[in-house]
């Protein structure tokens, strides 16, 4: 019969229409600002910088190695290295970034910077409500705006943060062990040097008595 299939199609439409009142499978829209979907596992938006402790200036993990700047596909990262050094999380003196800008109007959220970073210092944020009125100023994130505490990272990506913390802890432990070993070696070397010096001092021939002592007559 002509039109039979069209009526069947109408039935499908009707089923979907009424079904959307009952079935979650058929109604997938969400009333956005009031209602929000839960965050998905590995969601990524734009990068941020991680710092340890409370002071963003002191605890920043970034050492301005500029690998992310070089690898960034759209070249949206801009770093200026510092001239002086400050201690990093391992306690070693390190360079730090004087300027660290990310232009998020250029950034394409690809996560390459996170992957190439050898210091676990740049991570992806999940914040997506970033609309501003100022196109240039507010979309250029400076170091101050980018720096977020490690606790924030632990909150948004708990599993990844735990992994990254483990890496940091392992490196710290390694550095400490190395430092300790170095210190011990130094102590040992010092002791050895002392012992050697002492031995040398002991072994050194005592100034021979003058063969012909001057006689005072």
């Amino acid at each position: 019969m002509l039109g039979e299939q069209i009526i069947k199609g109408m039935a499908v439409t009707a089923r979907n229409f009424f079904g959307s009142y009952f079935s979650k499978n058929r109604l997938t829209t969400v009333q956005y600002p009031e209602e929000r979907l839960p965050q998905k596992g590995n969601t990524r938006q734009f990068p941020f910088l991680v710092y340890d402790g409370d002071d963003a200036e002191k605890g920043l993990r970034c050492v301005a190695c500029q690998i992310c700047e070089k690898e960034c596909p759209p070249k949206c990262i801009y770093i200026v290295k510092s001239k002086d050094k400050k201690p990093d999380y391992k306690g070693q003196p390190q360079i730090y970034p004087l300027t660290f800008d990310i232009d998020i109007s250029v950034c394409m959220s690809c996560q390459i910077c996170v992957e190439v970073c050898p210091f676990e210092s740049i991570k992806m944020n999940t914040e997506f409500e970033l609309s501003t009125a100022d196109r240039f100023g507010d979309l250029l994130l400076t170091k101050e705006k980018l720096a977020k505490p490690n606790s924030y990272y632990q909150k948004i990506h708990p599993a990844d943060a735990a992994e990254s913390d483990a890496v940091i802890a392992a490196e710290k432990a390694k550095a400490e062990a190395k430092a300790k070993a170095a210190a011990e070696a130094k102590v040992k070397a010092d002791a050895e040097a002392k012992a050697k010096a002492a031995a040398a001092a002991a072994a050194a021939p005592i100034a021979p008595p003058p063969a012909n002592p001057p006689t005072t007559t």
């Binding site: 949206c76 250029v106 240039f136 979309l139 250029l140």
Partner: peptide
């Protein structure tokens, strides 16, 4: 064009 973060050759 004017970009907020020009660097290098740009």
């Amino acid at each position: 064009e004017y970009e907020p973060t020009p660097h290098d050759e740009v």
